[in-house]
């Protein structure tokens, strides 16, 4: 088998679920999952803001899949979608997420997000210094 120096994570999220969470839990939900920058980047009427938040949640979950989350889950806020002034979004890892990426030789990351028909999706792609096969000390990702 040829080593593939690329790792990929993908996830999709029901936008209506985000609407429900915002309505039911409000700031508790927002500040538990999203950074201040992400919340500020997702303003507007709830259906519009929820679509953007759902895409960001999908990006976080896609990144967790890529990192392999059986070893302990980094705080959602340690995986941040940064919206540049140009409108382009980039992924920024901190804390446990950054450490996991470093341990596995992952990065830099490319991010693509979209939403349509009530669903938001994100794909995260990373170069991998170790190729397809991770170091033996790493557990495989669970989904």
């Amino acid at each position: 088998m040829t080593n593939t120096p690329i790792a990929v994570g993908v996830d999709f999220v029901d936008i209506a679920g985000v609407v429900r969470s915002v309505q039911r839990f409000g700031d508790r939900y927002l500040h538990r999952v999203f950074t201040e920058h992400e919340i500020a980047s997702c303003q507007g009427p709830l259906p519009v803001a929820a679509a953007s938040l759902a895409a960001r949640f999908a990006a976080k979950e896609a990144t967790l899949k890529l990192l392999g989350r059986t070893r302990g889950r980094p705080d959602w806020r340690s995986i941040e979608v940064v919206r540049l002034p140009t409108g382009v979004c980039r992924l920024r890892l901190r804390g446990a997420a950054a450490r996991l990426a470093l341990e596995q030789g992952l990065g830099p990351f490319a991010l693509s997000m979209t939403y349509e028909a009530g669903m938001a999706a994100a794909v995260v792609v990373s170069g991998s210094a170790y190729g397809w096969h991770r170091p033996m000390t790493m557990e495989s990702q669970d989904s």
Binding site: D11, D14, V18, Y29, R32, A54
Partner: peptide, 12 residues
């Protein structure tokens, strides 16, 4: 249960 639903479950 999706990952996102598990967040709502945690908060609840």
């Amino acid at each position: 249960m999706t990952s996102h639903a598990s967040v709502s479950l945690m908060l609840a």
